[in-house]
Write a protein that binds this DNA or RNA. Structure first.
Lengths: 195, 195
DNA sequence: TTATTTAGCTAACAAATGTTAGGTAGGAGG
DNA sequence: CCTCCTACCTAACATTTGTTAGCTAAATAA
């Protein structure tokens, strides 16, 4: 089972919420907007979720689940550092492209979470990026990567990966795997062919 | 004169708005929040700006001015492609670090602009990124850069640069120039020392 | 002096917000 | 049959929203 199971109606609500939160932003989407898109009254949503905040939290949290599930097995594998990082990048981009709306919300709307969820979000996200960071550190220790600050390098990688959510199209020229591999190529081997 | 001049009070309002829009987001910041932070009444803001939207627009537009002013002379210079791109990257990061709040609003809050400003924003931003894109294309034509799709490479560069607004601290370890040069190093020469 | 502009105020507006209370219709399980 | 649960409804709530109207006092220009 990929991610925690949920009733049919609840996941319909999530799907619509992800789409609208992505399109207009969390704050610019009213509970009535969500209800309209679902063909119900605003108050009826509260039979399924206790608050608007809970919907946002559920979206963010399930998306985090997807990310962890995708890269954990690779991170724990015995692969060579460079191959490991490449595979993690491809897997990470895969999650984004398979969950475009949810990941856009994950990356852009988390700051509107109410406390203490906002803190919980930050902790999960830091833990996740820590997995990438550990691999980068290993690469530096192995003298495989340039000795830039490991946090700096990791952030640079993450930003290049995460930005894909703004422009990826399922019907675009590049497949998710191609994007992941190109990104890994640029980030690991550099844009310049010969120095 | 760097950017279009403005009355003292108007730029105070902009400064406060940039900070709050960055911290809480445009939609989560009410006109009364701005007024409170400025020590005035909400209605008084309308002596200076016609609407909340106009404030957002002014922030975004002046930030765009800064970006264009910083890189245009470099783009129009006769520098060698690789050096030109490096200098543009450093200059771009410089604008971000010198205008942290404004650039955060520029990157994150533009989608809340009302039409037709939103379209106007998109056009300016496309024009700006087009300047980077042209240099990337030249590098590919010169066989200097790998033959990835030019749009793809440009987006990857821009995303790595623009993300700096989320973590840069004036009192951090790295100066703006160092960040720009490291980024140029990673993006142009790659993270890997030897292939 | 007088006239005009600037920068702020109070009071109010209609609309929209998230949420709750309390109800109803229909199906399932005993 | 009766009871309970699910999934929705209507109606209302207290707040908050961006914005306008109309005013005052001080500074500036003629």
């Amino acid at each position: 089972m990929a991610v925690k199971a949920i009733s049919e109606r609840k996941s319909q609500i999530l799907l619509v919420s992800e789409a609208l939160f992505n399109q207009r932003g969390y704050m610019a989407t009213s509970v009535r907007d969500l209800a309209d898109a679902l063909g119900m009254e605003a108050a009826s949503l509260y039979s399924h979720y206790k608050s608007k905040d809970e919907i946002l939290w559920t979206i963010a949290n399930r998306c985090a689940d997807e990310f962890f599930e995708a890269i954990s097995p690779i991170a724990e594998s015995g692969l060579h550092t460079q191959k490991k990082l490449t595979d993690m990048i491809v897997a990470h981009v895969g999650v984004i492209t398979r969950n475009i709306d949810a990941s856009a919300v994950f990356f852009r709307e988390w700051r509107h979470l109410a406390e203490p969820r906002r803190v919980a979000y930050a902790e999960r996200r830091n833990a996740y990026e820590g997995i990438f960071r550990a691999v980068v550190r290993k690469g530096i220790e192995e003298n495989l990567f340039k000795n830039y600050d490991e946090g700096f390098s990791t952030r640079t990688i993450m930003s290049a990966l995460n930005w894909t959510h703004t422009w990826y199209r399922a019907d675009g020229e590049l497949s998710s795997e191609e994007i992941g591999e190109h990104l890994a190529g640029i980030l690991l081997n550099g844009l310049v062919r010969t120095v």
